[in-house]
Write a protein that binds this DNA or RNA. Structure first.
Lengths: 111, 111
DNA sequence: TAATTACGTTACTATTTAGTCACCTATTGA
DNA sequence: TCAATAGGTGACTAAATAGTAACGTAATTA
């Protein structure tokens, strides 16, 4: 089990960082725009969160003069899906199937 | 954006806990069996991780005499998928579509 | 040109988390 | 019955993390 996704998992574990990513779903934003989404936090705190996202590969930042335009990179989330959610979703589906069988009493001998 | 999934995200942020869940994909295991998967950790450390998973709803434990049988609950993972991965996967698909358009120069005026 | 705006970095603090230890209860098997 | 087994909890420590403050650079605007 490869764990190069660990930084992604860690990045997604924080609600502020998830909110940042959610905001970026609608399109790129400047750093200031993201900072303003969290009036309860200082800009340094928000930027620190952005650093974590950037290091996890979830955020891309390009300079436009003195502005920084930040955009979402969905590839790591796709990887999370492929390596984690999809196998478990399969399990969920097969669990459902087994539950259906149990209810209907089709597979009573094997259990 | 509901964030009752925060404990789930936090639980999944740790590689040991992900490994525990991965082990449980093959079927329920006793606490000792899970502890033995991590010889570098004490049993208290492993059990503490299991506590986090249990509180996040990812792990179910039932008593069987002095044994504890632990099994995986895939529902929170399904919820992660529904609330987080699926919307982003949609975005990923539409990003691909837009990229394809850009490459083929079909939508040059709108950009 | 100088002031304002946009953002970066380092050092520090407080809180949270991961891990260990000491002590314990409950169940099973000899 | 008693020893061994299976597991639990609270207290403690060290490391990681979330947040703030101080100081700074670079670009834009008046």
């Amino acid at each position: 089990m490869t764990d190069s996704l660990d930084p992604v998992w860690k990045a997604l574990s924080d609600p502020t960082r998830r909110a940042i990513l959610d905001a970026l779903r609608d399109g790129p934003r400047t750093t200031t725009e993201l900072v303003e989404l969290f009036p309860a936090l200082s800009r340094f705190a928000v930027m620190k969160h952005m650093d974590v996202l950037r290091e996890a590969g979830l955020l891309r930042t390009r300079a436009e003069g003195r502005k920084r335009i930040n955009s979402l990179n969905v590839v790591p989330i796709r990887q999370i899906y492929e390596h984690w959610v999809s196998p478990y979703a399969d399990l969920w589906a097969s669990k459902l199937l087994r539950l259906k069988r149990d209810v209907e009493g089709t597979d009573d001998a094997g259990n």
